[in-house]
Amino acid sequence: MQTTNNTVLITGGSSGIGLALAAALLEAGNGVLICGRDEGRLAEAKRQLPRVHTRVCDVSNKAGREALADWATGSYPAINMLVNNAGIQRELDFLAGAADFNDSESEIETNLTAGIHLSALFLPHFLRQERECAIVNVTSGLAFIPLKIVPVYCATKAALHSFSMSLRSQLAGTNTRVFEIAPPIVKTGLHREAKARRQAERGIAPEVVARETLKALAKDRYQCIVGQAKSLKGAARIAPLFFHRLLNKLATR
């Protein structure tokens, strides 16, 4: 797929991987739209990347997703790429019971439901175009070997991985391609809780993920496993239970 002259919407684009990807796509000669929940962060992103177009949107909200799709396709009819990047990661202890689960719906809605719903909303517009289009889903190495302190996050990324494979098969023979980008731990603001933040300190820069994403698009590499996430995918094939225990043991250090 060509990596220039596209019009791209990136969810969760005001920081982290989304912002790095916006910068890389702009530099490559694309039009870029980003959305996020925080108006202040979007304003800062606009200051850093003056050519980016911004929209305040909480993708965990169904009406918000519908309004986002209407805005993007109506205001920028040339749009031909959707990057489902928005994500929330929460530490969740099921031993604490249902009280600790209260906010997990937004994690499921943001990480999984939003990507599925937005794909459904944008696909009719993409399929009517006479050019190549793409849906890019950002999953995680934790889709293959889960980390126990963030169980819902891992489950949503595993489900988005599965959805990407199924959607890719459904769209075979059309003008729309489905890419999956699975990074390892990345140094972003995604990791809100202390344990996850400590792990993030070992992570790679979001700019590395952005560069690998553009390479994957250019080479039609529909599944792009970045850095150490390759080890997790390989481990899932060999001895998933053993490596799950090992990963979780290392995570406690």
Rank of each mutant, 00 (worst) to 15 (best):
N30E: 05
G31K: 12
I34A: 13
C35H: 13
R37Y: 13
D38C: 07
R41D: 02
R41I: 01
R41K: 06
L42I: 01
A43H: 10
A45W: 13
L49F: 10
L49S: 06
P50H: 05
P50Y: 10
H53I: 10
C57P: 09
V59A: 08
S60M: 13
N61Y: 09
E66R: 12
E66T: 14
A67Y: 11
L68I: 10
L68S: 06
A69T: 09
D70W: 04
W71A: 06
A72W: 05
T73M: 11
A78R: 12
M81W: 07
L82H: 13
N85Q: 10
A86M: 09
G87K: 14
I88G: 00
Q89Y: 03
L92K: 08
D93T: 13
A96H: 07
F101H: 11
N102Y: 08
I108K: 06
I108A: 03
I108M: 06
A114P: 03
A120C: 11
L121Y: 00
F122W: 13
P124V: 15
L127T: 05
Q129D: 06
Q129I: 10
Q129H: 09
Q129K: 15
R131S: 10
E132G: 09
I135E: 00
V138R: 02
G141W: 14
L142M: 15
F144T: 01
P146Y: 13
L147C: 03
L147W: 02
K148Y: 05
K148W: 07
V150K: 08
P151Q: 00
C154W: 04
A155Q: 05
A155I: 09
K157G: 00
